[in-house]
């Protein structure tokens, strides 16, 4: 800057011009209403009339819940969903955690590509996965079995576990593992004694949400479940057209409550992690 600076010969410059903009809050709250109301409106209906939907409900009774718990097909479907969800979550959690750890701690050249392949089921349309699994199980003769359902859900859950656990591993301090290996711990020992305990919050939240995803999963189950292995969402889906009773309102309410519980549980796990981090530093 060696040019001779001059006095700016600018005259008085006018006043700024502007408007008020109070709309964001209103728009956001309308959106929240749009997001939350549908599920909330189901709740009063689930306590209402047994034969048809009446709104606002004129009476309060548990008839629909009673109906659900006394209908063996509904109970069977619910048990089946819980079974499939538990099994596939357990398998996906094991495989997904190992895969996430392997990917995060390896210096493979194809790491990026591997990750894309592993994660793609998360984003490609569920119906494509469903049809693929359907053809595959038809060929190997597993169609309609619980095994097929568990395998299918595991394929669908694994990418989610990998993403969640990888995020947890990224937060870990790799030097602790180095320290452990310097002290003579083997790879297996390091993984079980050092890595897993630190990952507990991620594992808890991955497990909870995997369970929920599997329990609510419709498309894959719709393609590969059989008459004897119908899951709850499949039964709900096929009964929307046929069922006249608003029993689905009761089921929907219970599913919504399950989602809320799982969200709160995961939030609790997250806070635990925050506390652990705060205690460390």
């Amino acid at each position: 800057m060696n040019s001779p600076a001059r006095k700016l010969n600018l005259g008085a410059i006018g006043k700024p011009v502007h408007w008020r903009f109070p709309l964001t809050g209103i728009m956001a709250w309308s959106a929240f209403a749009f997001l939350l109301l549908p599920s909330l409106i189901i709740i009063p209906i689930s306590f209402g009339n047994k034969n048809q939907i009446v709104f606002p409900p004129t009476a309060f009774h548990w008839d629909l819940y009673y109906l659900f718990f006394t209908t063996s097909t509904w109970i069977a479907a619910t048990t089946q969903s819980a079974k499939v969800a538990l099994l596939s979550t357990a398998i996906a959690l094991t495989l997904g955690t190992l895969a996430a750890y392997g990917i995060e701690r390896s210096r493979l050249r194809g790491k990026q590509l591997l990750l894309v392949v592993l994660l793609s089921p998360l984003l490609i349309p569920g119906v494509v996965t469903a049809l693929g699994l359907y053809s595959y199980f038809a060929v190997i003769g597993l169609s309609g079995s619980t095994t097929a359902l568990v395998m299918g859900h595991t394929v669908f859950l694994c990418p989610f576990v990998i993403v969640t656990v990888s995020a947890g591993i990224k937060e870990l301090d790799g030097s602790i593992e180095t320290a452990a290996s310097v002290m003579g711990a083997g790879r297996f020992k390091i993984f079980t004694a050092v890595v897993l305990p630190q990952l507990r919050p991620s594992l808890v939240s991955a497990g909870l949400f995997s369970f929920l995803m599997s329990f609510d999963e419709l498309v894959i189950s719709w393609f590969i479940s059989g008459a004897q292995t119908t899951t709850l969402p499949v039964k709900m889906y096929s009964s929307v057209q046929t069922e006249t009773s608003p029993i689905l309102a009761a089921i929907s309410t219970m599913l919504t409550i399950l989602s809320v519980i799982i969200c709160l549980g995961a939030e609790g796990a997250r806070n635990l992690r925050k506390k652990a981090v705060a205690a460390d530093s």
Partner: peptide, 8 residues
């Protein structure tokens, strides 16, 4: 669940 929302 998307099924719940659609039903709603």
């Amino acid at each position: 669940s998307i099924l719940v929302k659609s039903y709603a």
